[in-house]
Simulated assay, not measured.
Amino acid sequence: MEKFTRRGALSLTLGSAAFAMGCGTKFMTYRGPQVTRVEIQKSNRAMYLFHHNVLLEPYEVQLGFTAEGPKQFEGDGKTPEGRYHIDRRNPNSDFYLSVGIDYPNAEDRAYAEAMGKKPGGDIFIHGWGDKRRGRGKDWTAGCVAVTNREMKLIYAMVQNGVPVDIFA
């Protein structure tokens, strides 16, 4: 896997992006390499945006408040594990901006049904919202959170249909 340094990736991104930085706007246009895959590693609280095998951006993330194990049921506070896709965008998110992950998939629904429970849903990659939060403690209801500033860039870079691989 080729890899940019954080500074190199940021330079590439900033050099390739056109910012709509009017007062208070949270939207920008990204003109850099296409993000072809998102990888989330729960064990080290990291998310990586890739263009094929080239790392574009690494991020520290916060996860569901019950971080161990895969999401299985509604309300379990866990972040899913497996292959999903970005399937929607929310410019009016309570958590600044967000992009949706198509959890639950058919396997997730079947497992929950077999256990007599609901699988839950509404899993997003999102910002921190209006609350001041520090890095470290997991706090979401199963989503993946980054700072608002980071989410602004992710929202511009990651398009619907991009695969998201979430590993334990």
Rank of each mutant, 00 (worst) to 15 (best):
M1T: 11
T5S: 09
R6S: 13
G8W: 03
A9E: 09
A9Q: 14
L10P: 00
L12G: 10
T13S: 04
G15N: 02
S16V: 03
A18E: 11
A18F: 15
F19V: 14
F19D: 06
T25I: 13
K26T: 03
F27I: 07
Y30F: 09
Y30E: 02
Y30V: 14
G32E: 02
P33L: 15
P33V: 12
P33W: 11
Q34C: 04
T36C: 06
T36N: 10
R37P: 13
R37T: 05
R37D: 14
S43I: 03
S43V: 07
R45K: 13
L49H: 06
L49Y: 01
N53F: 06
L55G: 07
E57W: 14
E57N: 15
E57Y: 12
T66F: 15
E74T: 02
D76G: 08
D76V: 00
K78C: 12
G82Q: 04
R83N: 08
Y84V: 01
I86H: 03
I86C: 09
R89P: 05
N90C: 04
N92E: 14
N92D: 15
S93D: 10
S98R: 00
S98G: 11
S98F: 05
D102W: 04
D102L: 07
Y103H: 07
Y103R: 07
P104M: 01
P104W: 02
N105K: 05
A106P: 15
A106Q: 08
E107N: 08
R109D: 02
M115Q: 13
G116K: 05
G116T: 09
G121A: 04
D122K: 09
I123H: 11
G129E: 06
R132I: 15
R132E: 12
G134P: 12
R135T: 12
G136Y: 07
A141H: 13
A145W: 00
N148S: 01
M151W: 05
M157F: 01
Q159R: 14
G161H: 10
G161L: 06
G161I: 08
V164W: 12
